[in-house]
């Protein structure tokens, strides 16, 4: 099987061999919820490097900690222990877990994009306004450029004609496309998705995944959480979590065709009980 794999017993393989291309690094992340007497561990020492331009799918059974990992990696949830570092090419790295709320917000606004299972669009804004809001917030002096880019992105995701509609006047799939356009408005180089196709039917899910693949091909790193093997098959790396720990990590070989990759992934996931 032409795949690079790692298992729980060989965790160091989840780390990138060349740090030069690493985009995001997690070191010993722990996350616990609840009070001391009723504490639940969601993540138990996660170490992972994510390469620039990678498309990583995080999978695992319910309660395995995959969404928690995504939120810890993006700085939305504070970690209990460990560090997350965002590497910026030749520039200095940023330790996400050491940032103050204000700086974290700035980081998410300018360098990260998010797509959620629930579309989480703001109810009092039109579709176009929802897309431009993060752009206006990040670049208040470049409004015309932001609007032009928002319209361009809406065309790109195929809902240009819906720009001026209320969010109550569009379907779930259309709203998820709007959410992708919003995620890309500030041209982030890292896009997170938390089950972005979870609330969509199969054909809509496929269309959304096409878009995310396209986003990845443009050079952006994509990290998404999914239950769906078909979604995971669009990634080039799949990490399986179990009980808050990495249970497996499979990377697609460049020589594999889509079918070969899908087949080997299915077998690998079965062997990991996913």
């Amino acid at each position: 099987m032409n795949t690079a794999t790692s298992t729980k017993s060989d965790r160091t393989d989840t780390r990138s061999e060349s740090m030069a291309n690493v985009h995001l690094t997690a070191n010993g992340i722990h996350k616990t919820f609840g009070e001391a007497d009723a504490e639940t561990s969601a993540l138990r020492g996660i170490d992972i490097d994510i390469d620039r331009g990678d498309f990583v799918a995080i999978m695992g059974p319910s309660g395995s900690g995959k969404s928690t990992l995504l939120y810890c990696l993006s700085g939305m949830d504070p970690v209990t222990d460990g560090t997350v570092t965002l590497h910026d090419g030749d520039a200095d790295s940023v330790e996400v877990t050491a940032l103050r709320q204000r700086d974290l917000a700035e980081l998410r606004l300018t360098r990260m994009g998010f797509v959620f299972q629930q579309v989480h669009l703001l109810r009092n804004l039109t579709i176009l306004d929802n897309v431009v809001l993060p752009g206006f917030t990040a670049s208040p002096d470049e409004r015309e450029a932001v609007v032009a880019r928002a319209r361009e992105l809406l065309e790109l995701v195929g809902i240009g004609e819906l720009a001026d509609r209320e969010i109550t006047q569009a379907s779930g799939g259309q709203l998820q496309r709007a959410a992708i356009a919003r995620a890309l408005i500030n041209s982030p180089d890292l896009v997170f998705g938390d089950e972005p196709t979870g609330a969509l039917n199969a054909s809509m899910a496929a269309e959304i995944m096409d878009l995310l693949v396209q986003v990845n091909r443009e050079g952006r790193t994509v990290v998404l959480v999914t239950h769906d093997v078909n979604v995971a098959a669009r990634a080039n790396r799949v990490v399986v979590l179990r009980d808050g720990e990495i249970d497996g990590d499979l990377r697609r070989d460049d020589s594999q065709t889509d079918d070969q990759w899908a087949e080997s992934l299915a077998g690998w996931l079965t062997s990991h009980g996913t």
Binding site: M76, Q101, R102, A105, E106, L107, R108, L109, T110, M112, F114, F116, H120, L121, L122, R123, N124, L133, P134, T137, A138, R182
Partner: peptide
């Protein structure tokens, strides 16, 4: 609360 959470998630600062 959902609207605030969404904006915080997108990176709008608490001050904003």
């Amino acid at each position: 609360q959902s609207q605030i959470a969404i904006q915080r998630g997108l990176g709008v600062s608490d001050r904003g």
